[in-house]
Amino acid sequence: MIGSPFVLEKNSVRLTMVKVMLALIPGTLAHAWFFGPGIVVSLLVCGAFAIVFEGLALLMRGCCFKNFISDGSVLVTAWLFALSVPPLAPWWIYAVGLLFAVLVAKHLYGGLGQNPFNPAMIGYAVLIISFPNYMTHWPGPIHLVNHVPSLAESFDLVFAGQGSISIDAYTMASPLDTVKTLLRAGVPKADILANPVFGRLSGTGLEWVAGMYLLGGLLLLANRQITWHVPVAFLASVAATAGILQAVDPAYNMGPVFHLFTASVMLGAFFIATDPVSGCSTPRGKLIFAGLAGFISIIIRSYGGYPDGVAFSILIMNVAAPFIDAYTQPRVYGHARGGKVGR
């Protein structure tokens, strides 16, 4: 028997997930526009694998299959994962990544709401550590590559592997890779930026994808699905850290604008660091969580072994989230702590 309240808001986990997926559409479309239809294929493949793994996990756990399979959470995971890994990789790359994301990172910890780490980022981290080679072959912007695989060719590439098309025909080193390898090699920054893979703000095309993620994120914000704390703190911290590093060593570090408009920073700020399950939940906790995540991202990008650090920084902060939450409890009504209580 359930007591009051006897009325509930028309909201559900499924609705929340649907809204997140809707907000991901602009960024995904931008990606397809600038980099070819490969992303659509990887999205479909990832979605299928995710559903299969989720169903398998639920069956093994003996959970209420129907409600959980349709809650949409695994599709969000799959979508975020698909946007984080290069399209047109062999199908088993996606399978391995999602196997870890769904089975290990999510269901071994107890399923929906129980995972300490963001599942999509676990999948990404497993892949970049295990198969770094596949993870660096991103399709180049369509006007820069020799060949843009069509939808049918994309399916072929994913399921049948390299056929007639050479991998060099459609992939290019990503801007972050370029920065990392060439700066390390001592190439002057101006020469690097002359590479057509760089656009006005950041990577060609990628800056638009980032912009669309920003748009989707703002939609989520306007719909009150997320609060301002995480994106603002994350982006501010990224900008500040990048700014300071650039000021300290302009020859070796890229500026704040470049970093802000990389797709992974925008995706991380609005869609990944905002994951409530693995992130912080108190307002001040969110600021600390996202602020530190942004800082670590740029530190990894600038000094780490991997070209990108957003996934790792968020995973690192996931560990600290419960601790941060415990120490950032808001002041409760009527309790003194800096606040005005009584006369």
Binding site: R61, G62, C63, C64, N67, F68, G110, G111
Partner: peptide, 8 residues
């Protein structure tokens, strides 16, 4: 949800 499942 999962509690029911466990009991069942």
């Amino acid at each position: 949800h999962h509690e029911v499942a466990r009991a069942a």
